[in-house]
Design a protein around this nucleic acid. Structure first.
Lengths: 123, 123
DNA sequence: TGATATCAACAGTAAACACTGATGTCAATC
DNA sequence: GATTGACATCAGTGTTTACTGTTGATATCA
């Protein structure tokens, strides 16, 4: 029925910045952890089981499971039981883009930001 | 928003997901706080002094200053002394887009995500 | 020069978070 | 039915983090 993309046209202009922040921070917090972001980036490539994530990251099973929980709560990832494995997917395609963008932004961090913000200070 | 930055041309392909995460998390952590994200969103609209931020947010001056520090350290905002005021600006234009994207993503949060991810699960 | 406005840094307390090891659950296999 | 493999949850510990009140620095104006 409703297209999700239409939401961008909706009352986002009526929200105060603090309300926006309040809505967004939980998702952001869920991603603002090295282990969880690693999981999210791995899932942005393709769906994986917990075990695959465990092997790809070197984290313990408990730790992977532990960090997947908040990602689930924030609806950033989806679970699909397959046999006795749980296949995790990045929640919706709309998130794949942003998360991939995050991945590219990482490349901007080291010298990119320096080259970007250096207009005020010149060598 | 639909177009990703040209950063894709950079050596991001050589980084592992964990390395990407390690580079990105500090900036993400700096934004993953309601007060700090509110400040960032306000600065995405226009540059402001600490006092203006204080009045716009209702936060104490100490608290505003306190939260601006991590944003500065992560090079997300820039300071320009003007008289006895300090004018803060969102660091570079490349960040204005992303932060604005965050703002729109906030609108997607409430029912948007539900409508998006509801095909496979109900909670 | 002295008074005031603007801002950053310090120290203390309270809350949140990440990690570990052990236990519980469910499905597939023997 | 019992066992094994794949996950999730629970309880405990140690570390980060956020907020407050105070102090200190700097720039303006009288």
């Amino acid at each position: 029925m409703e297209r999700v993309l239409d939401v961008q046209l909706l009352p986002s202009a009526e929200l105060t910045d603090r309300e926006r922040a309040r809505l967004l921070v939980p998702k952001l917090k869920a991603l603002a952890d090295e282990n969880r972001l690693t999981l999210a980036l791995l899932l942005a490539e393709r769906p994986r089981t917990v075990k695959e994530l465990q092997e790809a990251t070197g984290m313990s099973q408990t730790l992977v499971s532990h960090h997947l929980a908040p990602l689930r709560e924030q609806e950033l990832v989806m679970v699909t039981p397959r046999g006795r494995a749980n296949v995790y997917t990045l929640c919706c395609d709309q998130l794949v883009g942003p998360v991939r963008w995050l991945a590219t932004l990482a490349a901007l961090t080291p010298e990119g930001a320096a080259a970007c913000c250096s207009e005020a200070e010149h060598e």
